[in-house]
């Protein structure tokens, strides 16, 4: 069972999570102290994506099943929270035809978030009952189908989701500090999950499903646990997104975002939490540079042409190159604390 890294256990896991958290908090604090508004926004967005990538890692990384539905669950979390938290006055304008009295109440942000997480997790449980029974391409296709179904509901069930228009008026209650706290918790949870009994059993079943079953692992159950746990991360990411921006629409929860986050995970290495963090940080900052080039800036007095699509090309190249040269990502099977230990010995 090659993915069971030696020496994995709770104490090294806490150390590893701590190291990652320190780095993440340091980036956050630096930006808060010295950054401009758009830089704060950018880091916030990167951390939202980090939550998604961590959620993806919990299922896809441990179970080794390619999942493409994650952005849909993020969207569900975002919309549910938005519907709950938005003041009645605004909903009267934006959702005049909402069914079931959805536009007649408003809750505080925390209850809204809890409801959003619970509903997303319940939906994930329902879907998970199907998806965990499939492996390989079958599971990937069903996840793709879910993405398309959810997106198409967001787009066409306009009474609730406003379709192509933006859902506005969500109270902006989150700041960079809030998401720092959330991501630190998420890193710890993801890492502890990886080393937990479930995580170990899941990784074992990813290597050898029949073998793991023979050892008494209830493969469907551990997959389901990981799937639902992952969905909680995704819902949280959606909530953080909505609570910061104040407006959401269906578009960001579709293929572009799916590929962006998958690229982050596989570049860093989907088998480890460290890989998830590293990939997210690298791609978030790298893309920012490329987006700058895309707009056609002046560099050393030369006006560069506008190059729309450059960031998409870069992402594609990252995916193709990673798959060709290092399919297990930068980190492979190594978590951050193992790097230090290896150096010491």
């Amino acid at each position: 069972m090659s993915s069971l890294t030696p020496g994995s256990g709770f104490r090294p896991a806490l150390t590893g999570a701590l190291i990652l958290s320190v780095v993440l908090v340091a980036i956050g604090v630096l930006v808060e102290l010295y950054g401009q508004r758009y830089q704060i926004r950018m880091v916030y967005a990167a951390y939202v994506n980090l939550l998604v990538v961590l959620g993806l890692q919990v299922f896809m990384g441990n179970a080794n099943i390619t999942n493409l539905s994650h952005s849909a669950f993020m969207g569900i979390g975002a919309y549910v929270a938005a519907i709950c938290v938005t003041p009645v006055k605004i909903k009267a304008i934006s959702l005049p035809d909402a069914p079931w009295g959805l536009n007649t109440f408003a809750l505080d942000p925390i209850s809204s978030a809890v409801i959003a997480v619970v509903i997303t997790a319940l939906l994930a449980l329902l879907v998970g009952l199907i998806i965990t029974r499939l492996t390989g391409i079958g599971a990937t296709i069903v996840s793709l189908a879910i993405l398309v179904i959810v997106h198409s509901i967001f787009l066409h069930y306009t009474d609730i989701f406003k379709g192509k228009q933006a859902f506005f008026g969500i109270p902006r209650v989150f700041t960079l500090n809030s998401i720092l706290v959330v991501t630190v918790i998420a890193v710890f949870v993801a890492r502890l999950f990886r080393e937990s009994r479930w995580g170990v059993q899941l990784r074992a079943s990813a290597d050898d499903e029949v073998g793991a079953r023979a050892m008494g692992v209830d493969v469907f159950r551990v997959r389901l646990v990981a799937w639902v746990t992952g969905s909680i991360f995704l819902a949280t990411a959606g909530i953080c997104y909505a609570y910061f921006l104040g407006t959401i629409s269906a578009r960001p929860f579709y293929f572009t975002h799916v590929f962006l986050t998958v690229a982050m995970l596989i570049l860093g290495g989907m088998r480890t939490v460290t890989g998830a963090v590293l990939g997210t940080v690298l791609i978030s900052f790298g893309l920012e540079g490329i987006r700058f080039l895309e707009t056609g800036p002046d560099v050393a007095g030369i006006k560069l042409p506008e190059m729309l699509g450059l960031s998409g090309i870069a992402l594609g190249v990252i995916i193709v190159a990673t798959m060709a040269l290092r399919p297990s990502g930068i980190m492979g099977n190594t978590e951050v604390e193992q790097l230090f230990r290896r150096r010491r010995t």
Partner: peptide, 14 residues
């Protein structure tokens, strides 16, 4: 599959 997704992204953006 992921490689193919990457290729698809590159071409679309090209």
């Amino acid at each position: 599959l992921l490689t193919a997704f990457g290729v698809s992204m590159i071409l679309q953006n090209l």
